[in-house]
Simulated scan of single mutants.
Amino acid sequence: MVRSRLLSKVGSGVVALAAASFLAPLAFAQAPESNDPIKIALFDWTSVNLNAKIYGGILEKLGYTVEYPTADYLSSLTTGLTTGDLTIGMEFWATTAGEAMAASDATKETENLGPLGPKAKEEWWFPEYMKAKCPGLPNWEALKAPACAEAFSTAETAPKGRYLGGPVTWEGFDDERVVSLGLPFTVIHAGTDAAMFAELDSAYQREAPIMLWVYSPHWAPAKYKGEWVEFPEYTKECYTDPKWGSNPDAKYDCGKPHGDIFKYSWAGMKEKWPVAYKIAKAYTIETEVLNKMSGEIDLDGKAPEDVAAEWIAANEATWKAWAE
């Protein structure tokens, strides 16, 4: 970074600070390069929208026009971002968007801007108190026992267990996984991310049965004591070759993949808004910080814009360095 190089080369701290102050405005002299709006996609979970508001807030500080259209998570990779109707999306999880990212890459109309920072994990999750009712957990094979399935059942699914999946736009292949592994469970999809975790909170307080999709980074694995189900380890072949795994006639007989979270942009962003593009490429955030801020929104009721503004104010040196 320019500032760090100056500090290492100039002996006087006073001179170094003066030089840094003089050069700082020059880094942003060409921004905004266009008054057309930079369209940052919003999806249906908290952390991605928080990252969108932080990034957008930084751009607004630099004079850019920013819009926040709500988009479909997976199809945005192969529609909105390819056409430029969307400029950037801040979170695409390799755990669920791997196929869509590959399809997007093939168009040559989008650009993978690199990892956000946190590592993604998404899987079936249960509260610790359910282990007494389903001996053998977290091994997935415990779920095949009728008594265990019934322990996770509700009035709408009994005697089958109930698995609360994410919104259908997240995909995740849970319906296919239940069939492939012969699990006596019914998959129910939550309407929204907020509804899913509100149901977890209600069940947890009552020690009621619940099995659901929990992901990290997120505040839930820190707030609630529980474990992820241990399915057969994911491999690419599990999702593409029916002969792989315990069921020779079906795909998805394994757990979900783990991996990075990536930022994606419309390919034309680099040329049209080079400073904004540079900031997006450099933008990273720590898992613990993201979890804490997401909790402030979901648990403490803060507005995403307010949490984003606090981060921007506290980290001005960081985001200014991203453009240098």
Rank of each mutant, 00 (worst) to 15 (best):
D85L: 09
D85F: 03
D85P: 01
L86M: 14
T87D: 15
T87Q: 11
I88H: 01
I88K: 06
I88C: 07
I88E: 09
I88S: 09
I88T: 09
G89A: 11
M90P: 06
M90R: 07
M90D: 04
E91N: 07
E91S: 12
F92H: 13
F92M: 15
W93T: 12
W93A: 14
W93L: 11
W93V: 10
A94H: 14
A94D: 15
T95A: 15
T95N: 12
T95G: 13
T96D: 15
T96L: 15
T96Y: 04
A97R: 02
A97L: 03
A97K: 02
G98A: 06
G98L: 13
E99F: 10
E99G: 01
A100I: 00
A100N: 11
M101R: 06
A102M: 08
A102K: 14
A102T: 14
A102S: 07
A102L: 11
A102P: 00
A103K: 15
A103R: 15
A103E: 14
S104R: 02
S104N: 11
S104M: 09
S104H: 12
S104D: 10
D105Q: 08
D105W: 02
D105E: 10
A106P: 03
T107Q: 09
K108G: 06
K108E: 13
K108C: 05
K108Y: 14
E109Y: 02
E109P: 00
T110L: 09
E111C: 02
N112D: 15
N112S: 10
N112H: 05
N112G: 07
L113H: 04
L113C: 08
G114V: 04
P115T: 14
P115F: 00
P115K: 12
P115H: 01
L116S: 00
L116H: 02
L116W: 07
G117C: 09
G117H: 11
G117W: 09
P118H: 08
P118Q: 04
P118G: 04
K119V: 07
K119Q: 12
K119M: 06
K119I: 12
A120R: 03
K121V: 08
K121A: 03
K121D: 06
E122A: 11
E122Y: 04
E123H: 03
E123T: 02
W124Y: 15
W124R: 00
W125I: 02
W125A: 04
W125S: 09
F126G: 06
P127R: 13
E128P: 00
E128I: 05
E128L: 04
Y129A: 00
M130V: 07
M130G: 01
K131H: 01
K131T: 10
K131F: 06
K131A: 14
K131V: 05
K131Q: 13
A132F: 05
K133V: 00
K133D: 08
C134F: 02
P135L: 05
G136Q: 03
L137K: 07
L137C: 08
L137Y: 05
L137F: 07
P138W: 10
P138N: 12
N139Q: 12
W140H: 08
W140Y: 15
W140G: 02
W140K: 01
E141C: 01
E141K: 14
